[in-house]
Design a protein around this nucleic acid. Sequence first.
DNA 1: CCAGCATTCTACCGACAGGTTAATTAACCG
DNA 2: CGGTTAATTAACCTGTCGGTAGAATGCTGG
Lengths: 117, 117
Amino acid sequence: MQTDPLSATFAALADPTRRAILARLATGEATVTELAAPFSMSLPGVSKHLKVLEVAGLVSKDRDAQWRRCRLEPAPLRDLATWLEFYRRFLDESFDRLDDYLNALQQPKEPTDDRSR
Amino acid sequence: MQTDPLSATFAALADPTRRAILARLATGEATVTELAAPFSMSLPGVSKHLKVLEVAGLVSKDRDAQWRRCRLEPAPLRDLATWLEFYRRFLDESFDRLDDYLNALQQPKEPTDDRSR
DNA sequence: CCAGCATTCTACCGACAGGTTAATTAACCG
DNA sequence: CGGTTAATTAACCTGTCGGTAGAATGCTGG
């Protein structure tokens, strides 16, 4: 894995188990065993996934007696939104051209990929 | 790599080389050698990265004589934006609570260095 | 102090990612 | 046809990932 934070964030999100954990944490804090409950996976396995999320800064843990309360951290997701914002114009443009594209999709030949405007 | 499309998208984006390729393609089409030029990496290496992006649906290629014109495809990035939209409320909420959070940040915790307002 | 619970650490495994070089395909041009 | 260019495929190496099992750590409550 790379060392840059954005790569760590993307890599952490490239796993459905970890995304499910995040989705659960978006509804509120939870302990490790609570988070592990929905999965047919050993507890150390879930703990490893949490570690990945933690290293990526997506999740933080507070010690509470023998429990760890896991919490979703917003910063990396905001950085991701910022990264995605760079492509916003492109996405909107291609969205506007979607109708034209679909209309021109009659023959499987050269579609209107002309960006000369 | 998982088989679900979102995981493939995240995994494809979890590499700075591939993100740089995408950023380049956001400015317009390019051939493989053009894309490879900025990197100190062998051509097959770049070709492999492109293959990952292509399998994830982020890039498509058109044959043009002996060249392949690579093009950025918007659909996966839009799916990513949709996924991120789910966390929008959480991000906005925690953004609103940021001041309170920073005030309560007496204990030596990792400062969420988001000073973006 | 001891028993028990929550969690992590260590060690290990198979599979895959990321990179290389060498060989191959495919198209152009003379 | 033969040579050149563009790009991929093949084979290989190394490191990391996702998962397991088992031991260790740390806290709580009697």
